[in-house]
């Protein structure tokens, strides 16, 4: 775990501190415990998606089916709860996770067996999921509601810390240990560096790809379940605004988009940074246009800083 902490992955944490300090000059209430814990709670949604995305990006692939895995899981879980049947109510969260894992395996089949570039295949899977969702719900907002469990997961708190944040960190730590301590983690990174060499070393590369996409699918599904708990409903295209910030969070956290290099520690910082940046920009009531521009410029600046720093030392 400690080995993962490089200067690149510390960058977003540094950015978070700068944001809080600069923001507090304009709005002193940013320093209040209420505001900061609320940010941790919201960051968990993006963070869970980014955790899954990190696994796939370490592999050297990308998962563009995040939005509709998220929405599908939310629709599925709220529909099960909304049916009023107590058994289905209990099954809502596991069913959503299983759904995410299944779609992850479908992604894996296209990428590992059919050898379709992940960027295109996951995009096609995303549009098929959209089609299924539209067919199922008739294009209207799906009916259903969130269970108490889902609401607690999204909005509850323990000892002043939001439960959503604790779930996110617990999953991140578990996955980080999994990546460092098990062969799977080493295979994952080595496929990211060189798939051919990994295959020649006797690793069953397709099964690693399957597992990675399944984990990513489950993370997206869990994000969807918690988001449905937060909003107390599922709605069409609730996942669309999350796709690009997810990738941005992973990359800002120092994970190379080419695969192999990086880790979950940086991703946590990346998700915190992006959530805080979005939040502060909206607290300052900057209009949408400038918010987009500032968002883009800051991400570029952080990436440029990371590469230029390497240029100076190498």
């Amino acid at each position: 775990m400690l080995r993962q902490i490089s200067i690149d992955s510390l960058m977003p944490y540094f950015g978070v501190v700068v944001l809080i300090i600069v923001g507090s000059f304009f709005f002193p209430q940013i320093l209040s415990a209420d505001y900061l814990t609320q940010q941790l709670q919201i960051a968990a949604f993006l963070g869970l998606l980014a955790t899954g995305a990190t696994i796939v990006i370490l592999l050297g692939h990308i998962d563009l089916s995040v939005p509709w895995i998220l929405t599908g899981a939310a629709i599925l879980s709220t529909a099960l709860v909304g049916s009023g049947n107590p058994v289905l109510n209990v099954l809502a969260v596991p069913a959503a996770l299983a759904f995410g894992a299944c779609i992850g395996v479908v992604n894996g089949i296209g990428v590992a067996i059919l050898r379709i570039p992940s960027m295109v295949w996951t995009l096609a899977v995303n549009s098929m999921l959209l089609g299924v969702a539209v067919l199922n719900t008739g294009g209207f907002n799906p009916k259903g509601e969130s269970s108490t469990l889902m609401v607690t997961m999204a909005s509850g708190d323990v000892l002043g810390l939001p439960i959503s944040f604790l779930i996110w960190i617990a999953i991140s730590i578990a996955l980080a240990l999994f990546l460092v301590r098990t062969p799977f983690g080493r295979y994952l990174r080595s496929i990211g560096f060189n798939e051919k060499a990994t295959f020649l070393s006797g690793v069953s590369t397709p099964s690693v790809v399957f597992a990675a996409f399944a984990i990513a699918g489950m993370c997206s599904a869990l994000g969807g379940v918690m988001l449905a708990g937060y909003a107390n409903q599922a709605y069409q295209s609730m996942g669309d605004p999350f796709l690009l910030p997810t990738i941005a969070a992973v990359v800002i956290g120092g994970t190379s988009i080419l695969g192999g290099r990086g880790g979950l520690f940086g991703t946590i910082g990346g998700a915190l940074f992006i959530t805080l940046l979005t939040s502060i920009l909206s607290v300052m009531q900057i209009d949408d246009a400038w918010r987009n521009i500032i968002f883009g410029v800051i991400i570029l600046a952080m990436l440029l800083f990371q590469t230029l720093r390497k240029g100076a030392t190498v």
Binding site: I62, L244, I247, A248, V251, I257, N292, I293, F295, G296, V297, I299, L300, L303
Partner: peptide, 10 residues
């Protein structure tokens, strides 16, 4: 991919 992601926002 990362550069154009950011510039797209701009």
């Amino acid at each position: 991919i990362v550069v154009t992601l950011a510039t797209a926002s701009i």
